[in-house]
Design a protein around this nucleic acid. Structure first.
Lengths: 197, 197
DNA sequence: TAGATAGTGAACGCGACGTTCACTAAATGC
DNA sequence: GCATTTAGTGAACGTCGCGTTCACTATCTA
């Protein structure tokens, strides 16, 4: 739902309307079935206005994802209970994947070769996640429940990577049982201080 | 390179030629840019012959991947050195991803929603990998270097999943350094018998 | 050797792409 | 407040690949 009969919009106003329309369309029909003309129609804009701004569907969708990302930059407060915190983070990732951004990401994989463009996009999505997971780990290190070595990027990345892998290969985000299993069988054993047996 | 002027092929002969052409085309232009007409041209076949056999590009490509898979069903003999064996398996996965099958897989992700079709395809790719990794683990369990709990599917799946994740998100298979890091920081610590410190 | 079967290649309508253009609404300057 | 510039609209256009159809022909079978 955008505004109602605002005459003729221009500039940022119009741009926002188009990006919103893109997100809605993405959520409804998915990346593969996204038609530029549908986005234009939904935004009540001319196709030319879209092409003036973005050269291709991929660019448009990436802009929309970025736009969306800028909105939901919520803070995360680690509780110190590492397992519970990670579960929260992972559920948040699942929710993100269930929305239009998830569709966008899946779409990109198809066209993503080894370009700087792709790297930029990946960083943009990964970096905030890594920061959050690292925070959680740090809280755990502080209270002695997590090994300091867990801060290695590959390990910090592990839970998010597995979430993404599930999402990309199954077409839907990991359900709670899977999240639990990932935590109990993989992540927690790796990061917790080895209890002297 | 297919055969030379075999008059007019039919049946399995023709089918093989088309699948070969699909694989070549896939390797050259990738899934996203695969044109049915190019495949037909390369196979010196009519489009109708393709559509008679496979209803869509996705089906054609899946058939080609299966065809290819049927060729390279090599046996794997675990040496007992778990780390070395896993490294070999992972390098093999990387090589697989670098070829036309990799392109095919990436392509499917875009259209893969939560359907039985998708599940079938995933199984087809995952199952052999899991068998191999499980064999490696079993050899390790037998000689006491691997914990029996490592046979949990989620853990057996771990290395292949991370390979796939890298491939899908970077557009190219994981290089050797990444494989080493995955092994040393993630997989090996998780599966090896905890040494009493 | 005749009939049945299977492949060819050209043509078709379709839908979406990405572009262009005459027209018009909003912003700007005087 | 009127004239000019800037930006968006919407319809039309050529192009491309899709998936289908059809008249023709090569191969197989009996």
């Amino acid at each position: 739902m955008t505004e109602s009969t605002p005459g003729r919009r221009r500039g940022d106003d119009l741009e926002r309307a188009i990006l919103e329309a893109t997100l809605e369309e993405l959520a409804e029909v998915g990346y593969a079935n996204l038609r530029i003309e549908s986005v234009a129609a939904r935004a009540r804009a001319g196709k030319a206005s879209l092409y003036k701004r973005w050269p291709s569907r991929a660019h448009l969708v990436r802009a929309a994802a970025r736009y969306q990302g800028a909105k939901g930059d919520k803070h995360f407060e680690p509780s110190g209970d590492v397992r519970a915190d990670l579960a929260r983070v992972m559920r948040r990732i699942a929710a993100f994947q269930a929305g239009p951004d998830g569709e966008a990401i899946r779409g990109f994989v198809g066209e993503l070769t080894d370009t700087p463009e792709g790297e930029e996009l990946r960083d943009q999505i990964e970096r905030p996640r890594l920061r959050v997971v690292a925070q959680v780990f740090e809280a755990g290190i502080a209270n002695g429940t997590v090994r300091p070595e867990a801060l290695a990027p590959r390990i910090v990345n592990l839970a998010p990577s597995l979430m993404t892998h599930y999402f990309l290969t199954r077409g839907k985000p990991a359900p709670p049982e899977v999240i639990d299993e990932i935590l109990d069988l993989v992540v927690m054993p790796l990061i917790t201080e080895r209890s002297p047996e």
